[in-house]
Design a protein around this nucleic acid. Structure first.
Lengths: 129, 129
DNA sequence: CGGAATCCTCGATGATACTG
DNA sequence: CAGTATCATCGAGGATTCCG
């Protein structure tokens, strides 16, 4: 309970139901939010680039999730007034920080997927045993 | 595209829509999954402990999310055959690894919440400006 | 106490069509 | 190309009740 002296000032509290930090968490850990943040780590990408890169996203959800992340200050959107439209998305400095954490989680899952799958198998006949 | 020699074997691919890693990500980053994994870092907790600790969870979702995490091998469930029932939840070794990543993200959000809130304010009058 | 079962709501997500 | 608008769907999540 008592925060250590070295602990940074913790303004938000995710365990409190009404804390706005819950919204930020929701955006970042949303189905496509995670993948967008990870994808943009490679650099600036266009809308269609992201769409191709992230398997299964619809245009709608990609646009909406990008807006969430843009509102939270994680993603920077630059639209060039040309025809046809040209819009580039990139991570803000703040966005790079979150994406780092998110990517670490994503990486862990991708690397340790076999162990998780194995664990599920174990559970299969657990009751019967 | 070409993985570095030092890169660990990456079995899963979150960018592929059909990859089972998507399910793991869904469980871990679910609304309550994140908070459960973080809460259990402090040690073994009972069902009711978790319920009190995590503001806003319903019994149903707590139970369901715990089952997801248990199936994935992240959470260990021990039920003592006594009356009234006594069930303890704790992190498995694998679970401790994911929770580490998840907690890092959660911490970042809690600490940097002010900056995110500030970013949102900036966006407020963006169009008008 | 720790659920399981049931019913219900709403938002995330999807599919399609239209536009600057 | 990069959306927006609209309509439809599905499942996460919630409220309530019942049980060992």
């Amino acid at each position: 309970m008592t925060p250590s002296l070295t602990e940074q000032l913790r303004t938000g509290n995710l365990f409190a139901g009404e804390c706005p930090s819950r919204d930020v968490l929701k955006h970042v850990t949303s189905r496509w939010g995670v993948l967008i943040l990870v994808a943009l780590r490679d650099g600036t990408l266009r809308f269609s680039d992201l769409r191709r890169r992230i398997g299964g996203v619809s245009e709608k959800m990609l646009a909406q999730t990008l807006q969430w992340l843009e509102m939270d200050g994680f993603v920077d959107r630059v639209a060039y007034p040309v025809v046809p439209p040209h819009v580039e998305y990139s991570l803000t400095p703040t966005g790079q920080q979150v994406s780092e954490k998110v990517a670490a989680l994503a990486d862990w899952i991708e690397v340790n997927l076999p162990e998780v799958m194995a664990a599920r198998q174990q559970r299969e006949g657990k009751d019967a045993a």
